[in-house]
Amino acid sequence: MRRWLADAETVLGNHSDRLNAINIFPVADGDTGTNLYHTVRAAATAAADAEGTDVGEVLAAAGQAAMEEAWGNSGTLFAVFLDAFAASLRGHARVSGPLLAAALHRAQIRAWSALSEPVAGTMLSVLEAAADGAARARHDDAPEAGADSNQALAATLDAAVEAAVGAVVDTEAQLGVLARAHVVDAGGVGFLLVLGALRNAVLGNGLGEDVLEGLHGYRIDDPHIHGAQPAAEGVEVMCTLTLTPLDAAGLRQKLDEIGDSVIMSPVGAFDDGAGECRWRVHVHVPDPEAALTLIGTFGTPERIAFTELHAADPTDAGVGDGSTRAV
C-alpha cells in the first residue's frame, strides 16, 4: 500500500499537465492534475512515515493527511475516497479480493454522499464503476482458488480497472460540456491513474499507454482544451473545523445557499464522548471572506486555503502553480 501511493504520486506528477489540459468541469480552471498530485503526495508521505503492518492503519494515516492537505475538488474527493477505503481494511495485514471490493464499495458511497450535488460523468462515476466491477469479480472467482487467494485479488483488481476504463470513456457522453469539447473528464482519468498505480504495485501491471492514448483529448499532442472554455469566476475556499453531525448538516445547508461545489466529509472517526469530528470543507463562492465569516459561526476554521478559479497558464509547470494561499 505504501508502494501504491508512492507510485500514484509519481504517475500523477508525470500526467499532471495532461490532466490540467482537459480540466473543464466543474470549472475550466485547468488544475485537476496539480490538485491530485499535491493531495496524493501528502498521502504518500504520511503512509511512508506510518509504522506497523496493519494496512488499514497505514492507509488511515494517509487518508487523514490527504484530507487535511487536500487541494481542489479532485483532491478533496480523492482524500474522501482514501479515508473511507482505509476504514474497511483496519485489522488486516493483507489486502484480499473481498476486502478490496468492500473497501471500494464503502469509498464510493462516502464519496457520493460528500457532495451536496453529486454529478454523474465525473470521478464519482469512475469510482462507482470500479466498485461495481470489483464486486462482480468477487463472485466470478474459480472455486478452487479461494476468495482470499492472490488469484482472486488479481481478478478483482483487473475487473475494477477494466470497469473504470469504460466509465472514463463514458464520461464524455454524460456531461454536455465534455461532449461539446470532445473530451473525457479529467478527475475521472486521474482516479483511473490511481487505480492503475494500485494494480501496478500489487501485480506489476499498470495501465497500458494504448488505454490512455485512446481517451479523447488526452494525447500528448492534443491542445489545452480548458483554454478555449469560458473563464471561470469566483474563489475556491477550503478549510478544516470541528463539528457535530448536526452542525455539519447546518453548515452544508448554508454553504449551498451562497456557493456551489460543496464537499463536506469527516476526517477520521467521531469522538464518541463529545460527538464531534474534524470536517474537511470545500466550496466555490464569489466572496471568500463572506464564506469564512459564515463558517466561523459554526466553529474555528483551520488550514484555510483560497484558490482563484481561473485557468492556469499552460506554459507554467504542472505541479507547482502556486495558486493556493494557505493561512
Rank of each mutant, 00 (worst) to 15 (best):
S265A: 15
A163C: 15
D29H: 06
R2E: 04
S16I: 04
G214H: 02
A197L: 06
D272Q: 12
A66H: 04
A6N: 10
A142T: 03
A86R: 00
R138F: 03
L100H: 02
A186C: 13
H105T: 15
A101Y: 00
E57G: 01
S74Q: 10
G75I: 00
N35Y: 08
A65L: 11
S125M: 07
T324N: 06
Q64S: 13
D54F: 03
E117L: 14
A326M: 08
D49Y: 02
T293N: 13
D83A: 14
T307D: 06
M67A: 12
A134Y: 03
A232S: 15
V55R: 09
E9S: 13
A42Q: 09
V283S: 00
A111P: 07
G322D: 08
A173H: 12
E51D: 13
A43P: 01
L195V: 09
A137S: 13
H310P: 00
N150G: 15
G133N: 05
V126W: 00
L5S: 09
E257T: 11
G273N: 14
S88D: 15
S323T: 11
V165F: 07
F270R: 03
G30M: 10
L5G: 13
N20P: 05
H284L: 02
E302Q: 15
A167T: 04
S116I: 02
A66L: 06
N200C: 06
Q151E: 14
A145K: 12
A249R: 05
A181T: 02
A163V: 04
A131M: 06
R41P: 07
E276S: 13
L77Q: 11
